[in-house]
Design a protein around this nucleic acid. Structure first.
Lengths: 151, 151
DNA sequence: CCAAAATTGATATATAATGCCAATAATATT
DNA sequence: AATATTATTGGCATTATATATCAATTTTGG
């Protein structure tokens, strides 16, 4: 992982479908070594994959909810139960365990407020052992990027 | 935007570098109409781009911070000032305006706790008009996906 | 039920990816 | 510091893929 690898990564974060030839030009290599570095990064799992960036509203999911959830109990069973159930929910785009008082943070994509309320009522509450749910909705987006800072 | 378009989108979210031929097979079309739908989705801005998914830790940014920020004043100037400055910060991967009491939510990627404290001290506080900053750190990740639910 | 429009599939051409080999550069060893 | 070893690079030939064009088919609206 040298500065050329990091540059390859940032270029691929900017444009995941750039051709190897263009990528090679951008990082000042010829196509062959550039491709070999790329394949090595994939092989090592540093590049975990590639994804299309989609406008959620156009797709039909205009509402993004950010949710903080605290559990009642923290027994191994309660935690595993919660995490297993959350992983299977297609509406959940991200879920992280946090430091501090709030146990979990999730990002959820839904069609609207009604759908969100149904999601919480039918998918989250039934998991059980939930102490509190604090929902916020995304009003507007100041910035989103997939490109990591240069280090 | 029909069910074929949505399927194309989900396949491209799973694998942004899938070849048009494979994509066509997966959505039960021949390559030509599949490519034309793809280009149309790009043209309409529904596919906003493509990006490599990178392991942040391997890249050298092992710490993800989730930050909630409230502003002191909400004058047009204070808001514009804050948002303009935030947009220029490379460490900020996402920043959203929220409903409810907390004004902004940001996801920030840094090399460690020291770097995070320096980021807050040198990049955020100097913006001014900030009422409160509430930081949480990602301990573990239960789920992350780029694939939207089937609707 | 017909006409117009949109969508589809096949084919030919252009572009890019991939594998292979020799040359170069970097690193380690004594 | 000189040499051996290893890693990395660049060019070329082959294979695979993307893209543009056109006729055929399907869908949609009156």
């Amino acid at each position: 992982m040298d500065s050329i690898d990091r540059k390859i990564i940032r270029e691929l974060q900017k444009n995941g479908r750039i051709t190897n030839q263009e990528l090679a030009t951008k990082v000042n290599l010829s196509p062959s070594p550039c491709l070999r570095r790329l394949k090595a990064l994939e092989e090592r799992g540093i590049i975990k994959g590639y994804s299309a960036v989609i406008d959620a509203k156009s797709y039909g999911l205009p509402l993004t909810a950010l949710i903080r959830i605290k559990l009642d109990r923290h027994s191994e069973d309660a935690v595993r139960q919660f995490e297993d159930r959350v992983r299977r929910l297609d509406e959940v785009i991200e879920c992280h365990v946090l430091t501090g008082a709030t146990d979990y943070f999730m990002k959820v994509l839904v069609a609207g407020l009604e759908e969100y309320e149904e999601f919480v009522r039918k998918q989250i509450h039934p998991i059980g052992d939930i102490n509190s749910i604090d929902s916020s909705f995304v009003y507007g987006t100041v910035k989103t990027t997939n490109v990591f800072p240069d280090i």
